[in-house]
Computed example of a mutant assay.
Amino acid sequence: MRVILADDSTLLREGLVRLLTEEGHQVTAAVADAEALLAAVDLAPPDAAVIDVRMPPTHTHEGLRAALEIRRRHPGVGVLVLSQYVERRYATELLTGTPAGVGYLLKDRVTEIEEFLDALHRVARGRTAFDPEVVRRLLARSTHAQGLARLTPREREVLHEIAQGHANTAIADRLRISRSAVEKHINTIFDKLDLPAASGQSRRVLAVLRYLNG
């Protein structure tokens, strides 16, 4: 696939270029700031963009703003955001828009090559990819206790897997339970979080947003 990289760390940027090239992907641009990122995406939209949250000049949320702008201008481009820390607000902003094709990984996860590549492939295919540690911390920090407090440990595990973008079959394999059991747990989660089937929206996405938004 075609990928654009944006990170002000030359070492990380060049390392990712080498990794992706060795895996057979085409890195069409590797830039150090948000302005150059937006220009590169506008010029030739890639299949996915890997973006650091904090970039010059202020090193606060330039990368996030660029990611959201890419989602607005080019909804077909997958966005995989990298962050040094778990930044709940950033993850929430990304998911509150169009969640398909969005991922959020801690930078430490990049060293786990298979997981990083899997996340990149997922967002490029229009799925979600959230770091398990990000999901765990967001779930733990959520103030939406009324609904979440009703979930059993197993239901929380299933919600954790949903937030990582896994389909029911994959969840069943990862938790070593049957697919029918997964479906029952998901329906129970929807009921406990008061997410009606007639809402006209994706209840899987709403379930994740419920604890991200707090």
Rank of each mutant, 00 (worst) to 15 (best):
T169M: 11
A119K: 15
R136D: 08
A124K: 07
V41P: 01
L64K: 07
T92V: 10
P56I: 06
A172P: 01
H160P: 00
R154P: 01
L64V: 07
V134G: 03
S83Q: 03
A163P: 07
S202F: 10
D131Q: 06
V135E: 02
T98L: 15
T98R: 15
Y104G: 04
Y85I: 15
I162N: 11
E133A: 13
R109H: 05
E14P: 02
L139W: 03
E183H: 15
R18P: 02
I113G: 04
I162V: 14
R13I: 00
T128C: 05
R141N: 14
E114M: 11
R18V: 03
R2I: 12
L68Q: 11
Y85L: 15
I4Q: 03
R71F: 10
Q146I: 14
L16E: 01
I177E: 06
M1C: 08
G101I: 10
I177T: 10
T188E: 14
G165H: 01
T28Q: 08
T21A: 03
R13D: 00
L64Q: 00
V81Q: 07
L193Q: 05
S9W: 08
R109P: 10
K184T: 13
S83E: 02
L19E: 00
Q201E: 13
Q84L: 15
V123K: 05
E22V: 09
V77Q: 03
R18A: 05
F116Q: 02
L80C: 02
A124G: 06
H121D: 15
N168P: 13
T152I: 05
V110I: 06
T60N: 09
G78S: 08
V123G: 02
A67W: 03
P57M: 01
G126Y: 05
F130I: 01
H160C: 08
A29E: 03
Q201W: 09
L195F: 12
R127M: 12
L43F: 06
V27G: 10
V110D: 04
D173G: 02
A197I: 13
G214A: 08
G78A: 12
E112N: 12
G103V: 00
D108Y: 09
L159I: 01
H144V: 12
T169G: 07
R54I: 04
G24N: 10
T92N: 12
V123T: 02
V50N: 08
Q164F: 04
L106D: 04
R141L: 13
T111S: 10
N187G: 13
L159S: 11
L151W: 03
L82Q: 06
A39R: 12
D118P: 05
M55Y: 09
D52C: 07
T128V: 14
R150V: 02
L105P: 09
R174H: 04
G147E: 00
G101K: 09
A91Q: 06
K192A: 03
A6M: 04
L193H: 08
V110P: 00
A197H: 10
A197W: 11
